[in-house]
Simulated scan of single mutants.
Amino acid sequence: MDRVKILNNNKVLKIVSILILGSLLLTISAKIKIPFYPVPMTMQTFVVIFLGLAFGSKLATATVGLYLIEGLIGLPVFSNSPEKGVGLVYFTGPTMGYLIGFLFTAYFAGYLNFKTNFLIIFSKLVFVVSFIYIFGLIWLGILIGWDKPILQLGAYPFLYAELFKILILTLVAKKIINLKNFI
């Protein structure tokens, strides 16, 4: 009986540790800007997908959820915060749709089977990351108006960086998936 209790406590400790470290990793990935063309790149989408691949749909979605809650309550976890605001004010700005898309991306990155060949993994990762852009562009259109060049503002500047991150993840996806064994 004591052995079962210890094992359960260890699993809870691992899960809580992953949640906290994952949200911290997301925060760090939002703050570091890497020079890239045509706009600087953050590694948030990379980390969101990484979390899904490494820890599965439930834990990755919970981690992204924790990150979003941290931002909503005013912690400066998002990219360009606190410079451009914190909390609900920042969250409901132009990036809200993208941030909500993180939840779906994390879920599907953890849900889909990535133990296949390069092209299929690449295609699935493109599908997974598309949720970020679908939600992001919908919210951007609602916020600034559909008469504005939504794709030119909210997608095109980021596509090269996204392709770069997806290629890296495609190459290492099978290795990342092995992290699930540690939970």
Rank of each mutant, 00 (worst) to 15 (best):
Y133G: 08
Y37G: 04
L59I: 15
L66Q: 05
T92A: 10
K14A: 00
L59S: 03
L66E: 04
I142D: 01
T45L: 09
F91V: 10
L68Q: 05
L88I: 15
L72K: 11
G56H: 05
V47Q: 02
Y111V: 05
A60K: 12
I132A: 10
V89Q: 12
F114T: 02
P38G: 04
P76F: 05
P82W: 06
G97L: 07
K124G: 09
I120D: 09
Y37I: 15
I100H: 09
I138E: 02
G71T: 04
K33P: 04
E83H: 10
G74F: 00
L13W: 14
L112Q: 08
M96A: 14
P76L: 07
F55H: 07
I100C: 11
N80H: 13
V48E: 02
T27A: 03
V64E: 04
G85D: 02
F91C: 10
L75A: 05
V47F: 02
S23V: 09
L143F: 15
F50G: 00
E83C: 08
I121S: 06
F102G: 03
Q44R: 01
L75I: 15
A60R: 12
G74I: 00
P38H: 10
T116G: 06
K31E: 06
V48P: 04
I132H: 14
I120R: 13
G65K: 02
S123F: 15
L19T: 01
L24T: 14
S17K: 12
M41Y: 04
I69L: 15
I144S: 00
L25G: 10
T27V: 03
A109F: 13
G141W: 10
L51I: 13
T61C: 06
F114S: 02
G93H: 05
L21S: 14
G93F: 08
P76C: 04
T63W: 14
G85V: 07
V77D: 02
T92Q: 08
N113V: 09
F102T: 02
P94I: 12
T105E: 12
T63C: 05
L72V: 11
N10W: 13
N117Q: 11
W139C: 03
V128Y: 07
I100P: 12
I134T: 11
S57A: 12
I138D: 01
A106C: 09
G56V: 08
K31T: 08
K124V: 10
K115G: 08
A54H: 07
G71P: 02
L88S: 14
V126E: 07
L19Q: 01
G101R: 07
G141A: 05
L66G: 05
